[in-house]
């Protein structure tokens, strides 16, 4: 320590910028920026970032506590009055909604029966994973959010994330106890959607604004102001029918979507497990068996076992899609 100090004692008033070292650090930064481009990110960086998120999440959460407290001090009595009003309104709303709940239950029962008749799988899986979103990275380059669940809780990359109003985005980097969610507004977000009313297809393209764009609409798109936009499931990235937002036209005449999920700050998030349909291409082909003849080239028993469930599972969703497309 003493040696280190004495070596630099003379240079007390200057930052010792060794030019070579500085250039080296600049080069490293440039390489990192190039390697971290979102469209072709180096695998190691993704893994490293996920691990770093795992470690930093508790620290960030702890650091935010006192700051959050400061913001919440405010005039609390005004908040109390607002709350009392809110409770009164909510009670009234609840009474009205009770009737709607009966209607919904009725419809849901009808729907279930019809799905059974049509041999359709319900589009939504049952086990959702609930998480608090913890960081708000509203920078100009990325629109992502961090949640405190990861592969330990069953999250995998590509799962859709929703709040109570609609789709928020989907998971990208997944660590053991944390995941990063790519928001629909991010520049790299592409989701195929449709208008609920007309089934007109489009691609929802994030452009880092709060209102993502509707692209690839075709020549005369059947879309109107206020149309409900939902996922179409065509892209095999998100399941069909998740609520996204309402179609709005901007000043330049481009169709955009006012997201349902931005109706309130994104806080509690549900992550829905979703398995995209796997293509049958890489499967071991099952040899054609003529009736009455033994197979020409029998598969080893384990390969046959491995091939069979895949064939079944890939066949089922295919019917599901064609059935729903009508």
């Amino acid at each position: 320590m003493a040696q280190w100090r004495s070596a630099r004692q003379g240079a007390d008033d200057t930052i010792r910028f060794s030019r070579t070292f500085l250039l080296l650090l600049l080069a490293i930064s440039a390489i990192l920026i190039a390697a971290d481009r979102t469209e072709d990110r180096v695998e190691a960086i993704t893994v490293f970032r996920a691990a770093f998120n795992d470690v930093s999440l508790p620290v960030l959460e702890a650091a935010a506590q006192p700051l959050r407290g400061l913001y919440n001090v405010g005039p609390w009595w005004r908040r109390q009055m607002e709350l009392a009003n809110e409770i009164r309104e909510l009670r009234q709303e609840m009474a009205e909604l009770r009737a709607w709940r009966d209607v919904a239950l009725n419809y849901s029962e009808q729907m279930r029966r019809q799905q059974e008749l049509l041999n359709l799988d319900p589009p939504m899986p049952r086990n959702r994973i609930t998480a608090w979103s913890v960081t708000e990275t509203g920078g100009p380059f990325v629109r992502t959010r961090l949640v405190g669940v990861g592969s330990d809780n069953g999250v995998e990359p590509g799962y859709p994330a929703l709040n109570i109003y609609g789709v928020v985005g989907r998971t990208i980097d997944v660590g053991a106890r944390s995941s990063r969610i790519l928001l629909l507004t991010d520049l790299n977000s592409r989701v195929s959607v449709m208008a609920d009313r007309s089934n007109a297809r489009a691609m929802l393209v994030g452009d880092n604004t709060d209102f993502p764009r509707l692209d690839y609409l075709g020549r005369a798109p059947d879309i109107r102001e206020g149309d409900r936009i939902v996922t179409s499931g065509d892209d095999n990235v998100l399941p069909r029918g998740l609520p996204i937002g309402e179609a709005v036209m901007d000043r330049r005449g481009l169709w955009r979507v006012a997201l349902y999920s931005s109706a309130a700050p994104i806080d509690l998030i549900w992550i829905w497990p979703f398995e995209p349909i796997a293509p049958p291409a890489e499967e071991v082909p099952v040899p054609a068996v003529l009736p009455g003849l033994p197979p020409a080239d029998p598969l080893p028993p384990d390969a046959a076992e491995a091939a069979e469930p895949d064939a079944v599972s890939s066949a089922e969703p295919e019917t599901d899609q064609t059935g729903e497309g009508r």
Binding site: L26, I33, T135, T137, L146
Partner: peptide
């Protein structure tokens, strides 16, 4: 890393600024 921005962005900014 903490803000989730492109890795190296603030590093290069601060280094050049200094």
């Amino acid at each position: 890393l903490l803000t989730g921005g492109p890795l190296g962005m603030w590093a290069i900014s601060y280094l050049l600024a200094f």
